[in-house]
Simulated assay, not measured.
Amino acid sequence: MTPLLIVEQVLNGLQSGIMLFLMAAGLTLIFGVMGLINLAHGSLFMVGAFAAAATAAATGSFLLGLGAALVAAACAGALVERLVIRRLYDRDHLDQVLATFALILIFSEGTRWIFGSFPLYLDIPPALSGPVTLPGGIQYPLYRLFLIGVGLVLAGALFWLIGRTRLGIRIRAGENDREMIAALGVDIARLYTLVFALGAALAGLAGALVGAIQSVQVGMGEPVLILAFVVIVIGGIGSITGALVGALLVGLTDTLGGIFLPRLFALVMDPAAATQTGAALSSMAIYMLMAAVLVWRPTGLFGART
């Protein structure tokens, strides 16, 4: 195994982790502020991907596709919050799970009805296609570097929004004591809609960005949603910093595990069996990481201790 391969896989892990952060940040905001378990968050990821693919195909503009993904996901999130989610805040978590699971089915069948069952494809714009030469002679896809850069910029913007703006103050206050800020005159219903739309927009943008390196198809958000839940458990529920650190850990563990574990087992067993065993364990590695973090710190790395 060469150092160039290791660096390339680390970059792949960073890119995967940054995209997971965009999913997990919205999910942890929604759960932290509203106390809502939203299984339909992956459907908003799918909505963004389909909106971007359809708009880019119709207009020929990748940027317009990204804008459409943001708008479509945010509008879908706001609509869902006002029509469905708003009735679930005071309900048991089981009711929330059942209702948002029903939303998954509605989004999936609605998307299939509008776009059909065949996948769509979102082309990488020519300006971002092809490889770029990094220090050390590493040839790496320019678009994946673009994903890392965009994700880091959005992460910085989100930290600024939460930590430095009036809306961020209200979001943090709503997470800690929603009754008190309601008594101080903050419109809780409007705040919840804004938070839900923000989380949905982040998920939709992530779907659009990832859609250019994989096919856009019905159900594409559910595997990412599972990983996003792992991320917020590792990082700590309600923590944006925890979502970022957890996403990077999950992305790197998943990517590097798939490379190193088969080679490690090849030292002690037949190569074919080593590949099969290593692949099976690499898919389990992120859950083993989550279990180890929970044993050491049950509230997650950055979760508040009660």
Results as ranks from 00 to 15, higher is better:
residue 274 A to F: 09
residue 47 V to P: 10
residue 185 G to R: 05
residue 167 L to V: 06
residue 235 G to R: 06
residue 10 V to F: 13
residue 235 G to H: 10
residue 221 G to C: 06
residue 232 I to A: 09
residue 145 L to N: 02
residue 65 G to C: 12
residue 287 Y to C: 09
residue 55 T to C: 01
residue 130 G to V: 12
residue 16 S to R: 14
residue 138 I to L: 15
residue 249 L to G: 02
residue 263 R to K: 14
residue 179 E to L: 14
residue 275 T to I: 10
residue 42 G to Y: 09
residue 236 G to C: 09
residue 23 M to C: 01
residue 183 A to H: 01
residue 74 A to I: 07
residue 258 G to F: 05
residue 83 L to E: 00
residue 297 R to W: 03
residue 90 D to F: 10
residue 154 L to Y: 03
residue 268 V to H: 01
residue 291 A to G: 10
residue 111 T to Y: 01
residue 80 V to A: 14
residue 145 L to D: 06
residue 171 I to S: 05
residue 302 F to T: 00
residue 17 G to S: 08
residue 154 L to G: 02
residue 185 G to A: 11
residue 92 D to P: 03
residue 4 L to D: 15
residue 129 S to C: 06
residue 302 F to A: 06
residue 105 L to G: 07
residue 195 V to T: 14
residue 106 I to G: 01
residue 205 L to W: 10
residue 232 I to N: 03
residue 132 V to M: 13
residue 28 T to I: 04
residue 284 M to G: 08
residue 125 P to L: 14
residue 80 V to K: 00
residue 149 G to I: 08
residue 108 S to N: 14
residue 199 G to F: 06
residue 42 G to D: 07
residue 239 S to I: 01
residue 112 R to V: 03
residue 210 V to R: 11
residue 285 A to I: 04
residue 53 A to K: 11
residue 277 T to P: 00
residue 48 G to N: 09
residue 82 R to C: 02
residue 1 M to F: 15
residue 120 L to E: 09
residue 155 A to Y: 12
residue 108 S to W: 10
residue 306 T to Q: 12
residue 127 A to M: 13
residue 171 I to H: 11
residue 137 G to V: 04
residue 96 Q to V: 08
residue 8 E to H: 11
residue 21 F to M: 07
residue 110 G to W: 06
residue 260 F to E: 07
residue 132 V to T: 15
residue 266 A to R: 02
residue 47 V to Y: 02
residue 163 G to I: 01
residue 199 G to L: 05
residue 293 V to D: 04
residue 170 R to G: 07
residue 193 T to A: 15
residue 50 F to I: 03
